[in-house]
Design a protein around this nucleic acid. Structure first.
Length: 283
DNA sequence: CACACAACCTGTCAGC
DNA sequence: TGCTGACAGGTTGTGT
């Protein structure tokens, strides 16, 4: 998926197009995604006004005027595609357009998810923080609750790799495979290093590295793999800035060594996920 | 409890 | 062109 910066980008796009609007019609084309969709989802959303759209970790939170919140997770392949009113003539749902939202001004927003690892739920605003999918999440990496003493404490005693620990949403919420690789590179920390050994100066480097990587990606409008599309349908472009991710055998962004001599960026598998790193710059 | 791994499902790409 | 296998941004459930 869409990791935190992509979800943030989607939320900003949706805020601009949907906030204040009434959902005139909602079409549901299948009963389930990763989990069953809420009962009578379309009926319960129809006629509701969108108050505001926020984000928690990788969840899109659409706050409605009746104190309900539509939670959306994009999974690996989910997208929210916005069709402005002047481009909806002859609209026909595309393959994998599982839920379609029609706004009062004619805008159409489609939730498209080929792999169906995404999910949606409709919950009361009062219970939001206690929702089972949100209750155990760690702090937002860009928020005040994420700092070196906190992270140092969470990593202490963990016997797994720093890579796996940072992917654990209970440690910090919103990082995914790409940005963990990128943040570890920026901090000069090997992804193979034991989590509990990341302390002191290393944590002091890691926390700002995580923030900078995420902020740069958000500023670039979210990164992209080939099939990720922002709310306006344009492809993101931050992928051009990846320092190590997807660059196996090549030079990392900052390396002055010659890949033909050093082997360049290495790829390995940790907890079933590809990790990319530069062994010369990450220890 | 903590961790590794398989499973969920479809699409794309490289190689033959 | 067609087939096969590997791989893909995430999370949950199971087993050790």
């Amino acid at each position: 998926m869409p990791e935190l910066p992509e979800v943030e980008t989607v939320c900003r796009g949706l805020s601009a197009t949907l906030e204040g609007q009434v959902l005139r019609q909602v079409d549901q084309h299948r009963p389930d995604l990763r989990f069953p969709l809420p009962k009578r989802l379309a009926q319960r959303l129809t006629g509701r006004r969108v108050e505001r759209i926020t984000r928690r970790a990788k969840y899109i939170l659409i706050h409605l005027d009746n104190a309900l919140v539509l939670m959306i997770h994009l999974g690996m392949s989910g997208r929210m595609v916005v069709l402005p009113p002047d481009r909806t003539a002859g609209f026909v749902p595309a393959k994998h357009d599982h839920v379609v939202f029609h706004a009062g001004d004619g805008t159409i927003v489609t939730f498209n998810d080929a792999r169906r690892f995404g999910m949606m739920d409709l919950v009361s605003a009062a219970d939001l923080e206690r929702h089972r999918l949100l209750a155990d999440l760690g702090p937002e990496p860009l928020g005040n609750g994420f700092h070196a003493p906190y992270l140092s404490d969470k990593l202490a005693g963990r016997r797994t790799s720093i890579k796996a620990a940072l992917l654990d949403q209970r440690v910090v919420a919103g990082l995914g495979n790409i940005y963990v690789c990128e943040a570890l590179f920026m901090a000069g920390i090997s992804p193979r290093r034991l989590a509990s050994s990341v302390a002191g100066q290393r944590v002091e480097r890691l926390v700002p590295a995580i923030r900078e990587v995420l902020e740069a990606a958000i500023a670039a409008g979210g990164s992209s793999l080939r099939d990720y599309v922002q709310t306006d349908g344009e492809l993101g472009y931050f992928q051009h800035a990846w320092a190590v991710y997807g660059r196996e055998g090549g030079a990392c962004r900052d390396c002055r060594c010659v890949p033909e001599q050093t082997g360049g960026v290495r790829r390995l598998v940790q907890s079933g996920r590809s990790t990319f790193y530069c062994p010369l710059q990450q220890r």
